[in-house]
Design a protein around this nucleic acid. Structure first.
Length: 437
RNA sequence: GCGGCCAUAGCUCAGUUGGUUAGAGCACAAGAUUGUGAUUCUUGGGGUCGCGGGUUCGAAUCCCGUUGGCCGCCCCA
């Protein structure tokens, strides 16, 4: 294997791979647009400081960062959130509300590659800014579901786990934990699913072993699967904040149910997500079988824009990755075959026929149809085979017999019927045929 | 960053105790077939056996290193 290899964790998109990627992007873009989101884009290379400001100095270990020729510390973007916060923050006062934005871009993380996790990957990001209420969550979670369901995935293929960092803070406060203890508990909750009881070791080292009675209450809270169960569990420790929060939960669940999406949602307080900047609802989408990494994740981050030095603007957002999504579609047989198939394949008898066909071929292409033809003379049989394999809807046959009669033969590739059409009507007949007659 | 497994054609793999010029199926291309998508047959292109070093008369095969891949840990924005 001479020559060069691509860098570890980076993908190359041969046309077949690229068409699958385009299929995914097209759906995301179409759905975001249907939900009234505006597309934006931004630099791939950013100041290193932008990510340190958001996530702390430790983040550098997981970034693709370097010093540029001007001595600037820079990093390839590992995520969109800080960037979009800057964009929105810088013009917050001038932007019409609600601010509903999305983008599709490539991101880079300097990590060891694993299944569903590479060093370069694409993400669809959608965010709503300036809306403090749960209406924004409804809108975003509905979009998230549609961005997966739009491919043909159903509630049996994936689901969205909905959790709430605020509620954990309120609940833990009601149980008597103070502000220095809560982060340790949340870290343990985050790990509990994977590690079991050992997840509480870190907390025990910092604050002493957890009182068994409190641990029971926390683990019971983790088991909650429905809104009524949640309400029952919180009944003994109702505060104003908790009551208000339950009201917002009801609103989110009711809204999504009214859209017919209730069955995609699972109440699951085990999701607190790694990063500390989330402030309210958090949610993650997983495949039902559970053998893939997270498909998507997001939540509310009301403090971040202010933390980056801009206005105090509430925000919710989520991201879907193309790697895991692609794996799931592959598993479910939902990857299309002829994404970039031509509309028309021209079958050419010989050199004279080729010259004659060129006028039509170019006119059809200029009119927007996808037209292909063989670049050198090949037998008719081969041409039809090529036409069939290309996925073309129809073939236009330019043979000696046809041209002598002043016609072109149009073959419907799906039902194999043929008809002769006068040369000067090719454009209009093809248009009628391809637009469904 | 740490640990385990793996690496032969575009893909899936075979390759005997180390022994002549490294094979198969699929895929691709040409032909049988000078006007119709199947099947079949024939032929062809494509490999410095991931890379580098060592042992040996001789290495795809054994040893060391290295790079890459997969899996797990850390992390997962």
């Amino acid at each position: 294997m001479a020559g060069f290899q691509s860098l570890p964790g980076f993908r190359e998109f041969y046309p077949e791979d690229f068409s699958r990627r385009q299929h995914i992007f097209r759906h995301w873009r179409k759905n975001a647009s249907a939900f009234g989101f505006q597309e934006y884009d931004a630099p791939v290379l950013e100041p290193l400081e932008l990510y340190k400001a958001k996530s702390g100095d430790e983040i550098e270990g997981q970034l693709f960062n370097f010093t540029d020729k001007g001595g600037r510390d820079v990093a390839l973007r590992p995520e969109m959130t800080p960037t979009v916060c800057r964009l929105v923050g810088a013009k917050a006062g001038a932007l019409k509300r609600p601010i509903k934005w999305f983008s599709i871009g490539e991101f880079y993380r300097y990590e060891r590659a694993q299944k569903g996790r590479l060093r370069a990957f694409h993400q669809f990001n959608a965010d709503i800014f300036g809306e403090p209420g749960p209406e924004a969550e409804i809108e975003l979670i509905a979009l998230l579901i549609q961005c997966l369901a739009g491919f043909g995935l159903t509630k049996d293929d994936f689901y969205v786990r909905l959790s709430d960092r605020d509620l954990w803070f309120f609940y833990l406060a009601a149980l008597g934990f103070n502000d220095t203890q809560v982060p340790g508990i949340l870290a343990a909750i985050d790990r509990f699913e994977k590690m079991g009881d050992d997840a509480f070791k870190g907390y025990a080292e910092a604050h002493g072993v957890l009182v068994p009675e409190l641990k029971e209450k926390i683990l019971a809270f983790l088991q909650i699967k429905t809104l009524p169960e949640l309400e029952t569990a919180l009944a003994p420790c109702l505060t104003d904040k908790i009551s208000q929060r339950i009201g917002e939960w009801r609103k989110v669940i009711a809204g999504l149910s009214a859209m017919g999406l209730g069955e995609f949602i699972s109440v699951d307080l085990g999701v607190v997500r790694g990063l500390a900047y989330y402030t309210g609802f958090v949610f993650e989408a997983f495949d039902r079988k559970g053998d893939l990494r997270a498909l998507a994740g997001g939540g509310r981050y009301n403090d971040l824009i202010k933390k980056l030095g801009y206005a105090d603007l509430p925000a919710v957002g989520f991201a879907i990755g193309d790697v895991t999504t692609g794996l799931l579609l592959e598993q479910r047989g939902l990857t299309p075959t002829f994404v970039n198939a031509p509309d028309i394949y021209a079958v050419l008898g010989g050199e004279a026929e080729r010259q004659a066909a060129f006028a039509d071929i170019h006119a059809l292409r200029a009119a927007g149809w996808r037209v292909d033809y063989p670049l050198k003379d090949v037998a008719f049989g081969k041409q039809f085979k090529t036409a069939a394999e290309s996925g073309a809807k129809l073939a236009l046959i330019y043979g000696g017999d046809e041209l002598a009669k002043g016609v072109v033969k149009l073959r419907n590739m799906s039902d194999r019927t043929e008809q002769e059409i006068p040369r000067d009507q090719v454009l209009s007949v093809v248009r009628d045929f391809l637009s469904g007659r």
